[in-house]
Design a protein around this nucleic acid. Structure first.
Lengths: 112, 112
DNA sequence: CGATATACCTCATCTGTCAAGGTATATTAT
DNA sequence: ATAATATACCTTGACAGATGAGGTATATCG
């Protein structure tokens, strides 16, 4: 988890928005789905997760509402907004550019 | 430059070490080679560049010495150490892992 | 002789991450 | 019964990396 943590910095918002593109979801479950997708190798720290929710909501990318569970712990559900979908698409485009850029920058001159 | 800046955060050290793998070089020239490699799209901010040099030198990844120019501004050359080469190789490996991880995390469920 | 390019540097500030703490409910094991 | 674990939310303070803004000095070009 610590290995890749530095390199995933800056992708938190994209990762969360991606999980909300298909359907609304709540924090705990979003993080579990991230853990599952990475085969148990990575999940967001709770503080990072909730900080990102506040940031994304304030930016108008997501909205939230309390679930109506009759039993168990309460859940705050998040829903991606139209602006959030636009942001997500932009972030995906930026990632494609950044990926190529990084690849070209960390290569050495001589390849054998 | 501002678009991809957030996504390149965390790769500064790798980018600099890569430029030193082939030969010693000095700060200003390293940054120009980064600018050239990205077709003018990206270069490190000076403060970022020199902060990274300090960090890398303190970590034992690079060493520095003053050039013996008889004319023009003085140049501080940097040389990658054996430890720096090891670090570089590790960072490259981590990047390969992180790249796949990010790709799998920012995908949406339904692909058409 | 002023502007620009080369070449270095530091300090204060901002932002995102995260360790450490907290609350509350439900289930499972002892 | 009760202790432990899982679910589910939250905040605060500290830290690290990036950066804007400032500085110094030399050489060249118009």
């Amino acid at each position: 988890m610590s290995i890749a943590a530095d390199l995933l910095r800056g992708h938190t918002d994209t990762i969360i928005l991606a999980r909300l593109m298909d359907s609304d979801n709540y924090g705990y479950e979003i993080n579990k789905s991230i853990l599952q997708r990475t085969g148990g190798d990575y999940e967001l720290k709770e503080a990072t997760l909730y900080t990102a929710f506040r940031r994304l909501e304030q930016a108008g990318c997501i909205s939230s509402y309390w679930g109506d569970e009759q039993t168990g712990a309460r859940r705050r559900y998040y829903s991606i907004t139209t602006a959030g979908r636009d942001t997500y698409n932009s972030l995906i485009s930026e990632w494609k550019v950044a990926k190529k850029m990084i690849d070209s920058l960390i290569e050495t001159e001589d390849k054998q």
